[in-house]
């Protein structure tokens, strides 16, 4: 008991409020399935796990740091050019991420192609900047960014998991469906690789999530 207390006093950085910021985006406030933000740019990269994971990390980094920067600047930004300032900060971060990817994980960056650039117009970024970072202190905003980025990434990875397993029988490029299944007539479902199945997979994820948490259901 006392140990717990001292821990909390020592690390006020991780108060329960902050932890909530980190946890909520995974379920009750998931950016994709509940807030309907940022579906745009990233679904096309969910054919395989690896690009999806890299994309998820990139988005998390960009959301976290743009939240941090905008939140620290929030009292100095002239409201009339607010959106432009946000766009410039986001675009600069995305360019940096793109350059780093090109330098260190060249093959993945080739696969992601234009979709890294499209992080700029990912609604999660602008949405979180407007809704959270403009009105909160830097540290909570940073955590909010990480939470939302990861919540978003989680959906990407789940979608990519199903598409890769069912579509090409692999996880992260490794065959996991045993050969004897193929021999006895099992076939990879080519439809899973095509873009429409990403949408339907998300539809099903939403279905599952809302059956479990009825308060999210729409009338």
């Amino acid at each position: 008991m006392s140990e717990k207390l001292t821990k909390v006093e020592k690390e006020p950085m991780f108060s329960s409020k902050i932890l909530k910021l980190l946890k909520n985006p995974f379920n009750l406030e998931n950016p994709i399935t509940v807030q309907v933000l940022g579906i745009c740019s990233a679904l096309a990269v969910t054919v395989q796990m690896k690009p999806a994971i890299v994309m998820a990390l990139s988005v998390t980094i960009v959301t976290a740091f743009s939240n941090l920067i905008i939140s620290s600047l929030r009292n100095t930004i002239p409201s009339r050019i607010r959106i432009i300032v946000q766009l410039v900060v986001v675009a600069a971060l995305v360019i940096i991420v793109d350059q780093v990817l090109k330098a260190f994980v060249y093959d993945v960056s080739k696969k992601l192609s234009v979709f890294v650039g499209l992080i700029i117009t990912n609604c999660i970024l602008m949405g979180r900047l407007e809704a959270y970072a403009m009105g909160n202190k830097p540290w909570p905003s940073f955590v909010d960014g990480i939470g939302n980025g990861l919540g978003y990434g989680m959906i990407l990875v789940i979608v990519a998991f199903f598409r890769e397993v069912l579509g090409s029988g692999k996880i992260l490029g490794m065959k996991i469906i045993p050969q004897f299944l193929y021999d006895s007539g099992y076939m990879d479902n080519g439809l899973m690789i095509l873009p429409p199945m990403a949408l339907i997979t998300i539809g099903i994820i939403i279905w599952v999530q809302r059956s479990k948490t009825p308060e999210l259901q729409e009338k």
Binding site: A92, I95, I96, Q99, V100, K102, A103, F104, Y106
Partner: peptide
């Protein structure tokens, strides 16, 4: 300035 620095720094690796 910061973008140019990043771009120039990473150019050789790319």
């Amino acid at each position: 300035v910061s973008l140019t620095i990043v771009a120039v720094q990473l150019k050789p690796a790319q």
